[in-house]
């Protein structure tokens, strides 16, 4: 039993009760992924599994045996920040920073969803291509809370990097 976390195979926990979040933080010491509410309400624990954003607090680690998990630690390439990480710095996409790893992983997952045409509750035409307007980003990112209220900066960072790559 093993998971692939940021490209490295790691054993799954022996105790089935361990959440993916606790496994990342307590066993693998990847503390970039944050524990906020631990009940699926805040999005701080968002990670990517084969490119799809999920909540690691509601995921039992054993359920992800054999799957590829990417955390915020796995986004930088060759020592350079992921463009969205750099944009969060540039656009003040955070204040305390606690929600930031979840926001960034979530936004990367959102971009992939938009690119393959997943509609949102706001879509006028469910079959049309997605334009990531501010309103669309707000709706699609509503699972990530920011107690500091850095939402405007977060949306600016997303619009400056990810949104232009999604076909209008």
């Amino acid at each position: 039993m093993s998971l692939i976390v940021n490209g490295t195979a790691v054993p799954a926990p022996a105790d089935a009760r361990v959440s993916l979040l606790d496994h990342l933080r307590e066993t693998l010491h990847l503390t970039g992924t944050k524990k906020g509410c631990n009940q699926g309400a805040c999005g701080a624990c968002t990670v990517l599994v084969e490119g799809e954003r999920i909540l690691s607090c509601l995921a039992l680690a054993v359920q992800y045996d054999g799957r590829q998990v990417t955390t915020v630690e796995g986004l930088a390439q060759d020592g350079a920040l992921h463009p969205l990480q750099a944009a969060f710095v540039e656009h003040d996409g955070f204040q305390c920073g606690y929600c930031t790893p979840g926001q960034i992983c979530s936004a990367i997952g959102m971009a992939a969803e938009a690119q393959r045409g997943v509609p949102s509750y706001l879509s006028d035409d469910l079959s049309a291509d997605t334009t990531l307007t501010r309103a669309e980003i707000q709706e699609r990112m509503s699972g990530n809370l920011c107690r500091c209220g850095a939402y405007n900066g977060i949306i600016d960072a997303i619009q400056a990097t990810i949104a232009p790559k999604v076909p209008a």
């Binding site: 968002t46 909540l55 509601l58 997952g109």
Partner: peptide, 12 residues
């Protein structure tokens, strides 16, 4: 479906 939960939860 799109009115429910969050995108992360809908993926799970």
């Amino acid at each position: 479906i799109l009115a429910g939960a969050s995108a992360q939860i809908r993926n799970m």
